[in-house]
């Protein structure tokens, strides 16, 4: 196979990895802090994508404004998910928690189908393709990657420079001690869920400029996001980014060598094996 094609796939892998990392960080935050797996997390991304799509096409909003609105909308949605669904079942068995967010998954997918049918909808932005060393790279992907990096940096500064951000990191280390510091757990959980939602919203914005959206979009990126979070190690932001890049390279390069489905199969098998070898994540710490 042509080396340039592989190089192109590798670069595309990195570009996809940026957006995946954004998702993985958002989910990692919620999983690590609230200790609940939001099975429906990536379906929030789908909501963000639709929000941008409709604001731009039906209401004629400029894209940047629609993007900001979508991020805000999904952040509020994340807050509501916590308030309405998660907080009543915080003490329930894990299987119930999985099911409640699973119900949200059915709900979001079906309601989107009801409202907007199963049509694939695309913004048709017609962004240029950039040629670098014989590789053809989509400008939309470069743009998405840049904003993904900015989003991650924003999260990093929030988590390290602010009181509430530092408290969010501390929660996963000692849930009880953080209450003794005067932090209200309910508030910490709410802020975490809103930030997680906002990350999903941003990912939605970055995906709608590259892909078309449909009600089952979450099924494409959902499972891979979960396994990236586990592989990277809970509460390990750097690990989440590395795992995202590894997985997106597997998917991207595997996609042109074999098929997209087989590439995903390889990614999942890598995950299953890695769990056995290093249950705490490839870059996780042993407790």
């Amino acid at each position: 196979m042509d080396a340039v094609l592989i190089a192109e796939a590798a670069v595309n892998g990195i570009l996809l990895g940026g957006v995946l990392a954004l998702l993985a960080l958002g989910l990692n935050l919620i999983f690590g802090v609230v200790d609940i797996v939001w099975i429906a997390y990536v379906d929030l991304v789908m909501v963000g994508m639709y929000a941008v799509y409709w604001l731009v096409t039906a209401y004629g909003w400029p894209l940047p404004l629609a993007a900001v609105a979508a991020v805000a909308l999904v952040a509020v949605l994340g807050l509501l998910v916590h308030l309405l669904i998660i907080s009543p079942i915080l003490a329930s068995p894990p299987v119930n928690q999985l099911l409640a967010t699973g119900g949200l998954l059915f709900f979001l997918q079906a309601f989107a189908t009801f409202l907007w049918t199963t049509d694939h909808r695309s913004l048709r932005l017609a962004l240029p393709v950039v040629e670098v060393f014989g590789m053809y790279l989509s400008f939309a992907r470069l743009l998405a990657f840049t904003f993904a990096i900015l989003g991650m940096l924003g999260l990093y500064f929030f988590l390290t420079r602010t009181y509430i951000g530092t408290a969010i990191r501390a929660v996963s280390q000692d849930r009880e001690a953080i209450a003794l510091m005067g932090a209200d757990m309910r508030r910490v959980y709410l802020v975490t869920s809103a930030i997680g939602g906002g990350m999903a919203g941003l990912a939605g914005v970055l995906l709608i400029i590259q892909y078309s959206v449909h009600p089952h979009f979450g099924a494409t990126f959902g499972p891979i996001t979960f396994i990236i979070v586990v592989m990277g190690g809970l509460g390990n932001m750097f690990g989440a980014v590395v795992a995202s890049l590894v997985m997106s390279e597997v998917i991207s390069i595997g996609g042109i060598l074999a098929s997209t489905e087989m590439a995903y199969v390889v990614a999942f098998v890598i995950f299953i094996v890695s769990i056995f070898v290093r249950p705490e994540g490839i870059l996780g710490r042993r407790e």
């Binding site: 009181y163 530092t166 408290a167 501390a170 280390q173 000692d174 001690a177 953080i178 510091m181 932090a183």
Partner: peptide, 16 residues
């Protein structure tokens, strides 16, 4: 204490 926060960050949490 919060083992994966720095000493300074631990104090910051004390002043939450």
């Amino acid at each position: 204490i919060f083992p994966r926060l720095t000493v300074e960050e631990n104090l910051k949490m004390g002043a939450f």
